[in-house]
Design a protein around this nucleic acid. Structure first.
Lengths: 190, 190
DNA sequence: GTCTATACGAAGATAGAC
DNA sequence: GTCTATCTTCGTATAGAC
């Protein structure tokens, strides 16, 4: 196994465990077991836990950029692209009901830990925010595009949060419909 | 110092630290330092960390019930009472921007830990949910009162989440105004 | 590049003196 | 009811053999 491959496996396992169990609650041993590596070898690839976190955030940023590019390419108009964002709540509903939003819960945990990487994790939100704002601009809402982006981000976070507490899929679907209706109402009058 | 007093001090300190640092990240030693107790003595009052968590949730449930009773007594009509809930975001904005919503972040952490007390923590949300639903019923929206309650709970969670990430007080105020306007629009036509 | 062995400190928890 | 001392386990991290 090449070092690059092993490293990638470590980051993938860490990414999943940080999401499902939380950053603090995930130990080196947990990740090592997952990747079928000895703890000793583990340190060949990553010196500290913060280093793994940095790599995980880095990978998440890259995957998010790719996803936003796909949505931009596939959507024929801004409204359709924003709906791709909204639909994430449906697509990932099973995991969201168990572990919440991967971005929101990580940022929340790092904020409490006052962790050095908390601002880096926040960049994940900034990616969505800027992309959504540019879609609202294209929709003809240039002046308040950022406010609208923050509003829809806010809703997705709120839905994820309550979906985890109440394990209620009908609630998710209801709020997704409501967000979609809200989105339609944001199109400027011709 | 009586045992009851000491116990209360422990729970108060734990409550604050669990909120500010998270449950996992808070150690017995952290709480003991805060209360100026030796770790040994600490175990006279609480045998396990989960026991402290149980006491903290218990106290929070009681304080929440009291707060809701005050809002119900002070508000002259349901709309005013619901606005008391919305205004929490403004009242607690400084702490929310640092640590998020105390209820939402605790539930999120316990969900990831798959902690035995996760459902008890969820009861905090249920208190707000039921209270809000009864206010929407009184407002004349009996049929969809629970959906409206969940919607406004969702918004408050979303606002708290993004407020922590972006440390943006203007965003909080904007969304509070938007929630208040939304609330006015929910009054059934006469 | 992977392993075993091990050091070291932090955290949860207990025993027993005062 | 509070203390010190101690035990154990776990988590981070290192050294060095293969």
């Amino acid at each position: 196994m090449s070092a690059a491959q092993t490293r990638q496996h470590i980051v993938e396992a860490a990414d999943r465990l940080f999401y499902e169990r939380g950053f603090e609650a995930t130990s080196f041993a947990d990740i090592a077991v997952e990747v079928k590596l000895s703890r000793g070898n583990f340190y060949y690839h990553f010196k500290t836990k913060d280093e793994i976190l940095g790599a995980v955030i880095s990978v998440r940023l890259e995957k998010t950029r790719e996803m936003l590019n796909v949505w931009a390419a596939e959507g024929r108009e801004p409204g359709e692209r924003i709906r791709s964002f909204i639909q994430m709540l449906i697509m990932n509903r099973a995991k969201i009901m168990l572990y919440g939003c991967p971005v929101g819960t990580l940022c929340s945990e790092l904020a409490k830990l006052d962790h050095v990487a908390k601002d880096d994790a926040g960049k994940l939100f900034t990616l969505f925010r800027d992309w959504l704002a540019s879609q609202f601009s294209a929709l003809g809402r240039k002046k308040d595009a950022d406010n609208l982006a923050m509003h829809i981000l806010m809703r997705s976070q709120g839905v994820a949060s309550l979906a985890t507490v109440f394990r209620d899929e009908a609630f998710i679907r209801r709020e997704v419909d409501d967000m979609t209706a809200w989105l339609e109402a944001q199109r400027p009058a011709n």
